Simulated scan of single mutants.
Amino acid sequence: MRDGLFPQTRLRRLRQNQQVRNLVREMRLDADKLVLPIFIRHGAGIKNPIASMPEQFQFSVDRLEEEIQAITALGIRSVILFGIPAEKDPLGQDAYSDKGIVQTAIPVIKKANPDLLVISDLCFCEYTDHGHCGVVEHDHTEKEVNVDNDKTLALLAKQAVSHAKAGADVIAPSGNMDGMVQAIREALDAAGYQHIPILSYSVKYASSLYGPFRQAAEGAPQFGDRRTYQMDFSNAGEAMRECALDVAEGADMLMVKPAHAYLDIIYRVKQAHPGLPLGAYHTSGEYAMIKAAAEKGWVDERKGVLEVLTAIHRAGADFIITYYAKRVAEWLRG
């Protein structure tokens, strides 16, 4: 018999019962590592179910306190906010108005739970009447949509300062504009918010897995698509370049979106930047696929979700933005 091989080495010894498996488990999900997205809309007394995302809702500001209490009771420590304004316009002015929907919501959330980490998504697709992520100045009949990058940077800077002023703990730009981290960092620093970290959507692919989100946030493009600014899902090297640029511009945390179908990218980003916290966004489409399969009885929802989120964590994500945050927190407690 050769040393170190069968029959002396039997890896199944460490799998023989639940106690042993628990002892040697390498990766564990924790509610502290989950971030719950919240959709906030104008109006009063609103808790609208989102048809394509079962168990998810749009909330009016006056309904937020009860949701924050429920989140807190489950041990969830972080949320990310998306706003749906009363009126939309070509520049998405509600996004950077001090009286905007998210700016109004943050103090309410902080009053309900001062310790809850509030991440504010920075983009314009929910706020513009055309549904694109910045300033669009061209004939809408053109084949490719051209978002004016540098004009959009100026508005992102205003939005970042406005959200920080309202009490956001983390600023998370998601619009895929070149130079967005640098512009936001300079604006925050100049306004006295040097302590506010930036979580950059550094790697955001032009994915088919955002469909339910666009319904939830009411931000679908009214013409064209977003392939001129979101990344081609065929590209991995480009993701590394995006991350390196964001790090150089001052990003404090990086993100990969989507997550489940991009485990290779999560792994590569973490290997390239081991010292920076890395988030992954388990998207609306990824959520909806599991939900739909579970409703059909084709997969065990609990087992499937825990497996997928553990895989995302194992690939290198330090935290996960997921619509399953509340449900997973319940399961982990159970």
Rank of each mutant, 00 (worst) to 15 (best):
A73E: 14
V145R: 04
I266K: 09
D121R: 06
M53G: 03
A73T: 08
M177F: 05
N22F: 14
S174G: 02
Q194K: 04
R185D: 12
K303R: 12
V24K: 09
S284M: 09
V108L: 04
K143Y: 03
D62H: 10
V20T: 12
I40V: 15
P221N: 10
M289P: 12
S52A: 14
D148Y: 04
R227K: 15
F223L: 09
A187Q: 11
D225M: 00
E87V: 15
L309A: 02
E330S: 05
L23V: 11
L23I: 11
A315R: 01
A168W: 09
F57W: 05
G297E: 03
L74F: 04
S52H: 03
P54Y: 04
A311M: 04
E144V: 09
F319R: 07
I40Y: 07
R25G: 09
A220S: 12
I84S: 04
K47G: 13
G92L: 09
L306S: 07
R63M: 15
G219F: 13
T104I: 07
R13V: 11
R21V: 09
P90A: 06
I68Q: 05
A259R: 02
N22M: 09
A70D: 14
A160K: 05
H273R: 02
R63K: 13
A244Q: 13
V136Q: 11
L263Y: 01
S208L: 05
G237T: 13
R77V: 12
E126C: 07
I266H: 14
E301Y: 00
A236S: 10
A251E: 12
L153M: 02
D89C: 06
Y96S: 08
H42F: 07
I109H: 11
D178H: 02
H282S: 08
L117I: 13
H42V: 00
I38E: 05
T104S: 15
A288L: 04
A164M: 02
Q93L: 08
L263K: 04
A51H: 08
A315C: 03
M253Q: 13
N113P: 10
Q8R: 03
A294S: 15
T283D: 11
E330T: 10
K47P: 06
H138F: 02
V35F: 06
Q182I: 01
A288W: 06
A236L: 12
Y205I: 04
Y229T: 10
S234I: 05
Q19P: 03
E307R: 01
G224M: 06
V299F: 03
L117E: 15
K47A: 14
L278S: 11
Y262M: 15
D148W: 01
K291G: 02
W331Y: 10
P37E: 05
L74N: 14
Y324T: 00
P90W: 00
M255G: 07
L188R: 06
G211L: 03
V181M: 11
G43N: 07
A261M: 05
E218C: 12
I196Y: 02
L11P: 05
V135L: 10
L199V: 08
I109N: 05
